[in-house]
């Protein structure tokens, strides 16, 4: 059970964990090819559609269970203070609501775990939480993760998944790009490894900061990865974008990522890379 996977750590309170974001039903439809899939098969197949290879978005706790050694995860910085730096109307209420529906604190989970026995500092973003957007809490959690990795001399892995800066926090959200990038530079100067893994979607301010700063940048197949969102570009240039534009395969062709890795292979590849 996934529940057994999260180890209790002394200063962190235990929480109930929803085992999966797949609905209770026995079957589910692939959003890409419309194939009806048996839920248990889907789970066994890492939430990848066996018919069309579509990598269905997974919640961060599922992701951690696919990547880390069982029972090895200790979560850091739970219950960050809610901030509303520009007093955006209704923002706090919205956050409270999303917290209760997603059972997540914020759009990223960070902590310490092991992959094949090797310790790693790891962060996983959640598209289900305001589209994984980065405000102060997300930027702060990621910065603390990077700084902890630097202090403890650990390799760092971040699974990116975000629509970009969280505009409800105004300029404070933009500043998180600078904060996280500066922390990564210090990690880099210590000669430590950072692997960023781009998942669907990785765009905007996250793409234009820590997502693209990995020593090694991996991506899942078919993930949308770009600075400007495709709709914005279409509106700006007044034409349709070519098929496959800003997908992982497009980025590897243009030399911006190191490798496209299928979800079923991700743990193995990460495990090899952190030992290289």
């Amino acid at each position: 059970m996934l529940k057994d996977f999260f180890k209790k750590s002394p200063n962190i309170q235990r929480r109930t964990i929803k085992t999966t974001q797949i609905p209770d039903g026995l079957f589910q439809k692939c959003l890409k090819c419309n194939e009806i899939l048996y839920s248990e098969d889907l789970i066994e197949n890492y939430y990848v559609c066996p018919n069309c290879n579509h990598h269905i978005r997974v919640n961060p706790r599922e992701r951690l269970s696919m990547i880390l050694d069982s029972g090895s995860f200790v979560e850091w910085d739970l219950d960050m203070e809610l901030s509303n730096p520009i007093d955006f109307p209704g923002y706090k209420e919205k956050l409270q609501h999303i917290k209760s529906v997603t059972n997540l604190d914020e759009a990223v989970i960070t902590g310490l775990g092991r992959i094949g026995g090797t310790k790693v500092a790891i962060g996983v973003m959640a598209s289900s939480f305001l589209m994984g957007s980065m405000g102060r809490a997300v930027g702060e959690k990621i910065t603390r993760l990077i700084e902890a990795a630097t202090d403890r001399r650990l390799p760092l892995i971040i699974f990116c998944c975000s629509g970009g800066a969280r505009m409800q926090e105004g300029m404070v959200s933009l500043m998180q790009m600078a904060k996280t990038s500066a922390a990564l530079k210090r990690h880099d100067k210590e000669g430590l490894l950072y692997i960023s893994v781009l998942t669907d979607p990785t765009t905007g301010g996250v793409m234009a900061s820590f997502a693209m700063l990995g020593d090694i940048i991996l991506a899942e197949p078919g993930a949308l990865i770009g600075f400007a969102g495709p709709r914005v570009i279409e509106q700006t240039i007044g034409q349709k974008l070519p098929e496959g534009f800003q997908r992982s395969e497009f980025l590897i062709e243009h030399g911006f990522i190191d490798k496209i890795v299928k979800r079923s292979q991700m743990k193995k590849i990460l495990s090899m890379l952190i030992r290289s």
Partner: peptide, 13 residues
Amino acid sequence: GEAIAKNLYEMSS
């Protein structure tokens, strides 16, 4: 995105 990220990263040091 890479060009912007690299500026943030390098400018910090």
